[in-house]
Design a protein around this nucleic acid. Structure first.
Lengths: 439, 439
DNA sequence: ATGAAAGCGCTAACAA
DNA sequence: TTGTTAGCGCTTTCAT
């Protein structure tokens, strides 16, 4: 992919930071007694020459006696400078603490070497994980990454991703469900963009989908195989079937984002077995721990009624300062369904599932004896939950690698007027991981 | 704080994006039948006028018949343009899809309105949470945020934060323990910087500390009050006392980062009660789920021997595909220490604690009956763990607010040659949250 | 191998 | 109220 690596006109971001490899300015040489650290740049009370003046290329040129161009070439390891001078120049520039002004460089090169990543919320583990691997991939390819939260303006309505002074970035990766193609284009503003989310209907923007349908179907199959014959879906869409027009125009859920797709796949998969997810078995909730906890609490109450479970007292609630004692959950014979068949609980996201596990524990509903639970995402913490959480795990690193590869390719082809050729939509691999919560 | 809001020379980033508030270009008006979406910018086969040419201020000037300056002033809502013309210009600019070239703007203004945040790892919940609130705070103050992973080069040695083409940012927030002041200065490169971490010895860089010492002491006190008389510390420093010089020069732990500080405070607090944390009770491990799990597994084994615990079979390991059945953990009388006194387990981070809870469950060690566990950080998931996790919770939003306030102040004073006045070091509030794991 | 000139797109300062 | 000039710091021609 590094085809235009030659000294042609293309500015490869990889070779744009040669001086950064040198030790930092206040570390005179390599080895030195680590004891005394006279590190301060300016002793805080004297104003040596110029208070806060940043050294520019011109300064270095003046100091070395060379022209700006020679200095520039030397610093960037261009072949047309004599070895001796190159070394000398680098030396001096380094000592002066010179660092290229990125704004100027970008203005000239029309390239920043920075990819922007927009995610909905740093705190949502799945997105955080994705950001991590995207960043690593980008770094490996010589790009830097700037991650930003989408800051969808609070309430459901004004959910437009505020476009900003972001024209600095060479490309954009939007990890945000609930986004329209128009919004993406507005944000990208001509630069290559890539969306992570369900965008099968996008015609001009490449995207990658999280295997919602097959993954969710696999989860349903799994619980079926594990003997469940009655199923609940936690975190399901508020309205179903998705009567897009009927509901509020500024709805929380977009036309076809993760939730509906996963839910639809589950319904289909179970229907094939003759099982039905009616409105009573579709439990909407926020895709948060709290959401999952609340939903499962409601479910536990209902199950207790329906299934005449003679549960022991559970734990107290998850709220900060209330709960007191460990539960008697385990006391063998206490909590068993009237029927011997465990209930299947499909959570559309691991976060919901983790909240649900807690609620079940509080209410004396045993997992997996009474209910079998499976989530969706594959968070690291799943394996450490008690009981450990079965899940449809996404291969996030693979996902990240593909996305960055695509985007970088687009960035580096862009000037050559590549044929748009219609949008590409890929699906990332998933893996069903069966753990204690479903067996 | 918006003092220089006037039309003075200062470029307030808040007022630098007026055109962004308008609807996006390909959304002609507000309402429109949501059915047909002819959204495509270029039908993918025609090359209208100029393939990928971004409209510049000059283009708009030409199109409107005004000078660049008038257009510029109009677009930025400067007072010296007639209302009529302003509207007209904005209109046209908007329709042309004009968006200011950020690189040029930055080059001119010497201001980007972007704050850089560097964190160690997006996937570590505490840091992710911090990033989230920092971003929100910055946004509220009219700045944007670009978050980046520090990418410390893998192994212990070359742990220098790679300095990069980052001179675009107005200020830097480094959320990274294990950093030297020299590294910070090298990265900041003249711009205001703020470090989150333990930097009491920094002389030129402001910093904020996470109340390591008092928080850890409070945790110890809490477990003491809860009746514990024997204590283990999970995630403790590898070497203690911190014989800095003796150990490998390029050690994993820096002189005095979170770990040692928290550990020292615990030792002190317990010493006041006459309890002692010797080498046997100091259990080092990675600050990860796995680390906590492994450490607690070792501890469980040891306790079983020491305390002649007649434990029932626990669950299987946390590893993906092994464990099979729910444990008999709860069966009332099975697992009780020979002595009636519960063991205190202090985890230096919640992540470690969560891993430990899992390990204890696997090994039939009952929490809080046999051991009482407390963590450090205050992650959202703590309340949903089974059992819910006691912790020393940091007030992350407060932390973020203070940090951003400080940094923004520094940014907006910078040119006025503010007196460095020595570095400031603050400590953020903490709160001890007692949950099931310790009572 | 080195240097001089020009300009990337924008805006502060000064005319008009 | 509007336009003209100059220059932020860098790098790509095009001389030398």
């Amino acid at each position: 992919m590094q085809s235009s690596q030659n000294d042609a006109d293309a500015v490869s971001p990889a070779q744009a930071e040669p001086i950064d490899d040198l030790p930092t300015s206040d570390r005179p040489s390599a080895a030195m007694p680590a004891q005394s650290q006279p590190t301060h740049e300016q002793p805080a009370d004297t104003a040596p020459a110029d208070p806060n003046h940043v050294v520019t290329l011109a300064d270095v040129a003046r100091a070395t006696g060379f022209s700006q161009m020679t200095v520039s070439n030397a610093l960037r390891d261009r072949p047309k400078v004599s070895e001796a001078n190159r070394r000398k120049i680098k030396e001096i520039a380094q000592r002066m603490g010179y660092q290229a002004n990125a704004a100027a460089t970008m203005l000239r090169n029309r390239r920043s070497g920075i990819i922007q990543i927009v995610i909905d919320d740093f705190e949502v583990p799945f997105h955080a994980s994705l950001a991590k691997y995207l960043a690593q991939e980008a770094t490996a390819r010589g790009y830097q990454v700037a991650v930003r939260q989408s800051e969808r303006s609070g309430s459901a309505e004004m959910r437009v991703l505020k476009t900003e002074r972001g024209l600095i970035y060479d490309g954009v990766i939007l990890d945000a469900p609930n986004i329209t193609e128009a919004q993406v284009l507005a944000h990208a503003h001509g630069r290559p963009a890539f969306v992570i989310g369900d965008c099968a209907d996008f015609s001009a923007v490449d995207s990658m989908d999280t295997a919602c349908a097959p993954g969710a179907a696999a989860a349903a199959e799994h619980l079926w195989e594990r003997g469940c014959r009655e199923f609940y879906v936690l975190g399901a869409p508020e309205h179903w079937p998705a009567d897009a027009a009927t509901t509020n125009a500024t709805n929380t859920t977009n036309h076809m984002d993760f939730g509906p797709r996963r839910f639809a796949a589950i319904v289909d998969a179970l229907a094939r077995h003759g099982a039905c997810i009616d409105d009573d078995h579709r439990i909407p909730c926020d895709w948060t721990l709290e959401g999952g906890h609340d939903a499962a609490t409601r479910l536990a109450t209902r199950l207790r009624a329906t299934h005449t479970i003679n549960a022991a007292d559970g734990m107290a609630t998850a709220d900060d300062s209330n709960s007191i004692r460990h539960s008697n959950t385990g006391s063998e014979s206490a909590a068993v369904w009237a029927t011997d068949v465990p209930v299947g609980v499909l959570c559309l996201t691991d976060t919901v599932a983790l909240g649900a596990l807690r609620a079940f524990a509080e209410h004396g509903v045993r997992v997996p004896d009474d209910v079998r639970v499976i989530g969706f995402d594959g968070l690291a913490i799943d394996a450490y939950a008690v009981p450990s959480l079965s899940t449809v795990a996404m291969d996030v690193p693979a996902m990240a690698a593909t996305v960055v590869a695509r985007l970088v390719a687009a960035i580096e082809t862009q000037p050559a007027s590549a044929p748009p050729a219609g949008a590409m939509h890929e699906t990332i691999p998933y893996r069903l991981v069966a753990r204690e919560s479903s067996r």
